[in-house]
Simulated assay, not measured.
Amino acid sequence: MERGDTPVTAGRRARPVVLVALTGAVLAALCLASLALGARAIPLDQVVQALTGHVPGPGGQAAENVVWSVRVPRTVLGVAAGVALGLSGALMQALTRNPLADPGVLGVTAGASFAIVLSITVLGVGSLFGYIWFGFAGALAASVFVYMLGRLGRSGLTPVKLALAGVAVTALLSSLTGAIVLTDPEPLNRYRYWSAGSLASQDAGVVWRILPFLAAGTVLAMACAPALNSLSLGEDVATALGRRLGLVRLQGVTAVMLLTGGAVAVIGPIVFIGLVVPHVARVLATRAGIGPDHRWLLPLAALISPCLLLAADITGRLVARPSEIQAGVLMAFIGGPFFIAMVRRRKLAEV
């Protein structure tokens, strides 16, 4: 406690730290659950032994192999991709000042998916490092196109028009993606599995290759936080406070491109995480007395999103054991009703 602070003031200052710490503890617990649960349940003590040394007894080597070869890469990928998708959604909602903004809803995910499938089936790109650049380009092109489409009309850009433009572009790109895949049956099975959105079947090498892109996007997103606080007061106020809005938007779009393009390239087009998580973060921040401060909202979104993705992944492993349901399918069940509720809260007369 600083000199002159009352216990009440010190408690208010500690609330954001406590909230972030609690969310981090939930994420750590879900990471342990992700390492322990699946088609074969592994006791937590064996998981800890596998991570710190050697699992004794019969079956110990098999448990180590499952933990290190399958579940550690899957869990790390879930955390990294979850952070990327949650930050993308929070950043897009702040930049557009639109509560319906989300990489999946606004066509960014579909743009990355279309470009990746195009590079694989038409151009013959076969490596992750090859087609990830197409994912970045597709994410950027789709976001620009949706933004320009949403500006058409006498009323200009409104949240609902932007969401409807994103849904239309997503449907168009998804149809084109399906048409391309159907003309080439060889990658069809791989695409069907990838398009459902899953954390499975990725080794540690793939995870390490994608992390630098996601880390760069995360740093750019976090650096936008002070400017986003100014932008939330209005463009005129932000400009009066010395913010260079063009530079802020360029930085934000670059971060979204890196985060969404990188995540989609590896786990597929998982939608609705970027829509749901920022709203959950704002509710928790409001109840904790933090308010709409993006210096705390962005880290909260970055922690809540992997919690949601890992929870969906773990649930998918358990409900259909020994098989599994992809995390993207479960996220659609969660995000669909949430999106409908959000749209119903808007003034549809603005459309």
Rank of each mutant, 00 (worst) to 15 (best):
Y147S: 09
G197M: 02
P99Y: 11
R209F: 09
V72L: 11
L284Y: 08
G24S: 00
L123G: 02
V343G: 09
L30R: 02
L128N: 01
A255T: 03
I267T: 09
L250Q: 12
M1V: 08
R249Q: 05
V343I: 12
A168W: 07
P73C: 05
L228D: 00
F339W: 10
E350S: 10
G38A: 12
L85N: 07
A142E: 07
S174D: 03
A36R: 11
V248D: 06
P185N: 03
A168Y: 08
V283M: 14
R3A: 13
R287H: 08
K347D: 15
A168T: 12
L118A: 14
L37G: 13
S201K: 13
A341F: 14
M222L: 10
A36W: 12
L231T: 02
R97K: 14
M257D: 03
G82F: 00
P99F: 08
V276I: 10
F129L: 14
G138A: 10
I120Y: 02
P322S: 01
A302K: 02
T52C: 13
E324G: 05
A14S: 08
G138I: 11
L22D: 05
S305A: 14
F272G: 03
L220G: 00
F136I: 06
V280R: 15
R192M: 10
L241R: 13
R321V: 11
E324K: 11
L182T: 03
G328F: 07
A41H: 14
S305C: 08
S127A: 12
F129Q: 15
M257T: 14
M92G: 06
A349N: 15
D45A: 15
G38M: 11
S323V: 06
A216L: 10
R317G: 00
R209Q: 13
A137R: 00
V20Y: 06
